[in-house]
Design a protein around this nucleic acid. Structure first.
Lengths: 198, 198
DNA sequence: CTCAATTAACTATGTCGATAGGTATTTGAG
DNA sequence: CTCAAATACCTATCGACATAGTTAATTGAG
């Protein structure tokens, strides 16, 4: 369901071919909901079958090749509103890093947990930077998908459209910072356990 | 891989039948890595086939019915250590709540985003309470799986075994608090956008 | 002009996980 | 003693997702 919503949100900004959608996905909505190409193509076809998208064959290249261009329909826009009206069903907890940490005593030595926590910090530091870049891209108006979206919407809505996207990425930053702080606490814990056993 | 690790961690505390494992799972390691029964039974069989567990048929009831009791092998313990030595591969970002928030402008009215954020706060408030209860259970030594684990391990290791589990749940609490703070910020944002458009 | 790299558009295959069953056995209430 | 509820132990099915391809057209370097 979320992939469908993410694609609707993407295509609501303007028509896309499958390839466009797959590529644009990665640099916009894909930061919040990842999907590989192999999921995007069939989902677009299903969405067209369900009436959420219109599909048009447009020529591609000099030979008789064509590509499929998708446009959001009114039903697609209604589906987006419906999505906003539906409570989320939260996925059950599945957190590798916390699971691993709960069983650090199985590590052959203290160095391994230290490495895992350091990797955790590196991963979420990069995630935080990525989110910050997204926010910078929003503020400087150089995100192409957002630019298309703003062109096709009323000027009085621009403020909130931007505010919501900033807010979503601010959440990613907050999450990343919580993970970094946790892992740093873990490094201190390892330190104190090492010292207490000398 | 994580399900396997979670089951090894569980069974390292003492032998379990499939049913035992499935039930105990939910009240211990399942708080960090959820899995339904339908995944646990076949995974136990695969782990036995791979030599990580020994399986013994023990009688069950008065008729000739039996149940399968699994015990961790040395290979299983080595697999746990190996798991601790392997860097995590982080799952690609997939966050329904943040995706939804990024497109709040599609909501039919301001009330729907407010509901979603309120639900988000409720969900993570419960998650935080659950993690706090786990920590309390650890501190008061009334978590049965932990109790078994401590019985079968050297007293000098008890401190760190407990510390790691507290640490893992502390991470869940930190995560939950970050989500709650984020959603509250969102409620304030909605408020300010409503006021600015009157 | 030709060939390698890039762009465009997908498909195949397998595993993970969610949902929803099903079938024995035991326990305890009346 | 018998019948319903609870306990114990699984299985089937399907969609989501990951990994790893394939095919065809276009562009640009030499």
């Amino acid at each position: 369901m979320s992939l469908r919503a993410a694609l609707l949100a993407l295509i609501s900004a303007g028509p896309s071919t499958g390839y466009d959608a797959a590529k644009r996905f990665g640099s916009s909505v894909g930061h919040l909901w990842h999907a590989p190409d192999s999921q995007i193509y069939p989902e677009l076809r299903r969405m067209q079958a369900d009436g959420l998208l219109d599909a048009e064959q447009v020529p591609w290249g000099k030979k008789q090749a064509t590509k499929t261009q998708y446009t959001i329909t009114d039903a697609g826009r209604r589906a987006l509103a419906e999505w906003q009206r539906t409570p989320l069903d939260y996925a059950p907890e599945r957190d590798q890093a916390h699971l691993l940490a709960a069983y650090f005593e199985w590590a052959p030595d203290d160095d391994e947990p230290r490495k895992r926590l350091t990797e955790h910090i590196a991963y979420f530091t990069e995630a935080r930077e990525s989110a910050r870049r997204q926010i910078a891209g929003i503020d400087e108006r150089n995100n192409p998908t957002l630019a298309r979206r703003l062109e096709t919407s009323a000027p009085e809505d621009h403020e909130r459209i931007i505010a919501y996207k900033r807010f979503a990425y601010a959440g990613k930053i907050a999450r990343a910072e919580a993970e970094i702080a946790w892992a740093q606490e873990g490094l201190r814990l390892l330190e104190s356990l090492t010292n207490s056993s000398i």
